[in-house]
């Protein structure tokens, strides 16, 4: 599998950190990447046209916006967008 860039962008709130930690776990379990980036740059979110936080992006494409799903759902979402 080629390199994928996975990033969690948030305003620094609790939910954003929780999503980041959960994503790290899931990414490790799916064995697709070593690092998940974490950013507090709100302008990145806004310039994508999105207005909720946190945002999960895969190769700079937003795949999850504003919610903290459970682990299985997060796996599903990441997996679906890898194809």
């Amino acid at each position: 599998m080629g390199t994928v860039k996975i990033e969690v962008i948030g305003s620094g709130c609790k939910k954003c950190k929780a999503l980041f930690e959960l994503t790290e776990v899931v990414v490790k379990e799916l064995n697709i990447n070593d690092i998940v980036l974490y950013s507090n740059d709100i302008n990145k979110i806004v310039s994508m046209g999105i207005m909720s936080s946190p945002v999960l992006t895969l190769n700079d494409k937003p795949i999850l916006v504003g919610i903290l799903p459970d682990k299985e759902r997060l796996k599903e979402i990441i997996f679906k967008n890898l194809e």
């Binding site: 709130c13 302008n43 046209g49 999105i50 909720s52």
Partner: peptide, 17 residues
Amino acid sequence: TPFCSCSAIPLFLGFVQ
């Protein structure tokens, strides 16, 4: 719309800009 203080800034910027 749900409102979590997480989204206050992106909402504000997104609207005004």
